[in-house]
């Protein structure tokens, strides 16, 4: 096991009386695909928001390459190399696909407004380079030919891909994907799964994945954590998670463990596919 790229240590996030994330510990080694699953409202997205700087956790520590990052503003977190996508797609909807990716490149660019006004050599070089890079990424995420569409006019599946493209533009070390296959049909889901694997294999990016589709999760995860009511109730590889009685209980309700093996599996796959 390589050194962890990110460590979430004893993190809690409280909204008024509700503890959305409760003393969660997670350690993700580099180049892992690490999945976080759990029923609706378990606190998965909230945990993402803590890591990416949207929320400041009340308790605990988040270490990126050993340095604490909790409390940093989101742009600094992005600048350090953590990118994310959103559960309900949040693109810059009145800008084109290429422009969305160009904005993703922002942290890597250096020219400022003075360069832009004078059109310095530095500016022209960087601008030309970033357009090329944006088009390359556009192609990489499979949106070639759609670059000049307004983001809001793209079909749903392509919007999800564009969001990943924008996140990749930042050249992240760590990528947080919040339900990337939500709303996709079976074919699209299979394609997306394959694509996520490619991101890790080709680009060497560490990925934390929130996902409800168990086929996806079990297929590509190196390790899985399960959240329930904000608490981490299990961690392990796919086989361990599938066999864990607490997980089954979290998904099926109390008494679930007592159900017969066969029935349990049936119910489990049903619950997961929803």
């Amino acid at each position: 096991m390589t050194d962890p790229i990110i460590q979430v240590k004893n993190v809690s996030k409280i909204f008024g009386g509700l503890t959305a994330v409760n003393q969660v510990d997670i350690e993700v080694p580099e180049k892992y695909i690490y999945s976080i699953i759990g029923p609706n409202g378990a606190g998965k997205t909230t945990l993402f928001n803590c890591i990416s700087g949207f929320y400041f956790p009340e308790k605990g520590e988040i270490l990126f390459y050993g340095d604490p990052i909790q409390g940093l503003s989101t742009n600094l977190v992005a600048w350090l190399g953590i990118s994310r996508t959103y559960q309900n797609i949040r693109l810059f909807s009145n800008l084109t696909a290429v422009e969305n990716i160009l904005i993703g490149l922002h942290p890597n660019l250096k020219t400022n407004w003075v360069d832009a006004i004078i059109h310095t050599k530095r500016f022209r070089k960087e601008e030309g380079g970033s357009v090329k890079e944006a088009l390359r990424l556009l192609d990489y995420v499979g949106l070639k030919g759609y670059g000049d569409f307004l983001a809001k006019n793209l079909p749903y599946g392509l919007q999800r891909r564009l969001e990943i493209g924008r996140a990749l533009a930042n050249q992240p070390k760590l990528l947080l994907l919040d339900e990337p296959t939500a709303g996709m049909n079976m074919n699209e889901t299979a394609e997306a799964t394959h694509f996520i694997k490619r991101l890790r294999d080709e680009l060497g990016i560490t990925i934390i994945l929130i996902e409800h589709d168990m086929k996806v999760v079990m297929g590509i995860s190196d390790r899985i954590s399960v959240l329930d009511y904000g608490t981490k109730i299990a961690e392990g590889n796919a086989a361990e998670i599938q066999a864990n009685p607490r997980v089954i209980e979290a998904y099926l309700g109390p008494g679930g463990a007592a159900l017969s093996e066969k029935y349990k599996k049936q119910r489990l796959s049903y619950a997961k596919s929803n």
């Binding site: 990416s52 742009n75 992005a78 800008l95 922002h106 924008r166 930042n170």
Partner: peptide, 16 residues
């Protein structure tokens, strides 16, 4: 333009 479209997301994309 990004700030205008969605301030929070623009910031999380690295815009100050």
């Amino acid at each position: 333009l990004a700030v205008k479209e969605d301030t929070k997301v623009a910031q999380a994309t690295g815009v100050n």
